[in-house]
Design a protein around this nucleic acid. Structure first.
Lengths: 233, 233
DNA sequence: CGCGTCGTTGATATGATTCAAACGGTGTGG
DNA sequence: CCACACCGTTTGAATCATATCAACGACGCG
């Protein structure tokens, strides 16, 4: 996919209709496309935050907490927008899990306070708020849940977000991330993740084939496993 | 503190100078002040997100993960801004730890796409981005660190953020939250938190007096304890 | 002064990590 | 085409950290 197509897809999916051509052109001017091979890392100006639109493929956003020790903060798939913060206490990097096409936009591009780009600013706020909610949910999962619950949560989330990959509701999805990457995002070890996969399989809640094919057989049961309780008032 | 003073303090601290009077007045019109007693919960319209400016006192933002089981997502002190999301997968509530004066502003107030309020929108985006970074750091701490490291991290954070409470660099600060609340924010039990307090005290890194007076004797040592490693490239 | 809540400390249990070995695919060279 | 090595995954056994259960102590309040 070339830049124009990628940008159009982004505009279709994310930008509101009421945006002026001037604002769109300005954004388009500052955006650029990048093709990442599987495992490829996106290099950004560390001093600015960026919005990254994932046009195709799958990515992870990871923080380097110490040398060769990273914590994955978010997985993002085709159609998602990632907010990559500037270098701070931790350094973040966006890495492709599968070959991916991404659209890179410095956050500044949205932050012009010209009247025309007001709608753009609104988009930025909303996307950031969405990322904030996701991050807080993630923090809750990491803080309060057992390994079983974390994996169940994770699988339900991925299953829902990759829904468009399976035409009928029943097909399997291809997990783009390794066991190790799942472990790094859930704050567990690879062995624990593997064991939980096996146990969920034995419970008849999921089916797996090879390392990456997954089918959720019993979403309700898995949801129960995840400890999904309705919020109390 | 009455509403005008509270709003002025908010405007001084957060709003940029280049804001038009019209935008400020619009925001002022939709904002309202609330006095919370210690333990008091702020009741908000669940369907909208809000920005809360903490004028004085200390607050916690907690998610109800199950009945009588909550996870604290953020602590905020005088001068801070909290983003409270709408009801979603979890329900959030802002609760005062000490008597607190807060300024409540529906996020919508910032999201007008009128040209005058562009600067306001920018403030909203920046505050949300700040909250996102804090939340991600929190997630990293919860995912990758031992009890000792989590508490050390937490104490350093609070020590830095309440710096203005101690005139000279050496004084003690008053922790506004209980051991139980610290535990709920770190994803630990109250007993573990208590034990870690004792051990940090025995190591000579901190001093405590009663339940809430804290002095960090050796910030460097505590920082080493927190496993603060410079980010790898 | 007595009571209740919060905090501390100790003993034990549980669950995740660690260390270690075996398994299964995939790619390479003989 | 098969043997082999490599990498990611799975499984098992032992260890360690935190949770849990329980008792006690300290402080604030009526």
């Amino acid at each position: 996919m070339n830049f124009p197509d990628l940008f159009d897809r982004f505009a279709d999916r994310v930008l509101p209709a009421n945006l002026t051509d001037a604002a769109i052109l300005q954004l388009r001017h500052e955006a650029y496309a990048e093709d990442l091979p599987a495992g490829g890392r996106l290099h950004l100006d560390d001093d600015r935050s960026h919005f990254i639109f994932v046009g195709s493929g799958a990515t992870k956003l990871a923080a380097f907490v110490s040398t060769e020790r990273e914590q994955i903060v978010a997985f993002d798939f085709a159609g998602d927008i990632v907010h990559v913060p500037p270098r701070g206490r931790y350094n973040f990097a966006l890495t492709a899990l599968t070959p991916a096409e991404v659209l890179v936009m410095p956050a500044d591009s949205f932050l012009r306070t010209t009247p025309e780009s007001c709608a753009l600013l609104k988009v930025a706020t909303e996307e950031t708020a969405r990322a904030l909610s996701a991050s807080r949910e993630n923090a809750i999962t990491l803080g309060r849940r057992s390994a079983r619950e974390r994996l169940a949560c994770f699988l339900l989330d991925v299953w829902a977000r990759m829904a468009d990959q399976r035409k009928t509701g029943e097909e399997a999805i291809v997990l783009p991330m390794s066991r190790g990457e799942i472990a790094e995002s859930l704050g567990l070890t690879i062995e624990t993740v593997s064991r939980q996969f096996s146990e969920l399989r034995e419970l008849g809640l999921i089916e797996t084939c090879g390392r990456s094919l997954l089918r959720v057989v019993n979403p309700e049961g898995l949801s129960r496993c995840a400890g999904q309780v309705a919020a109390a008032a």
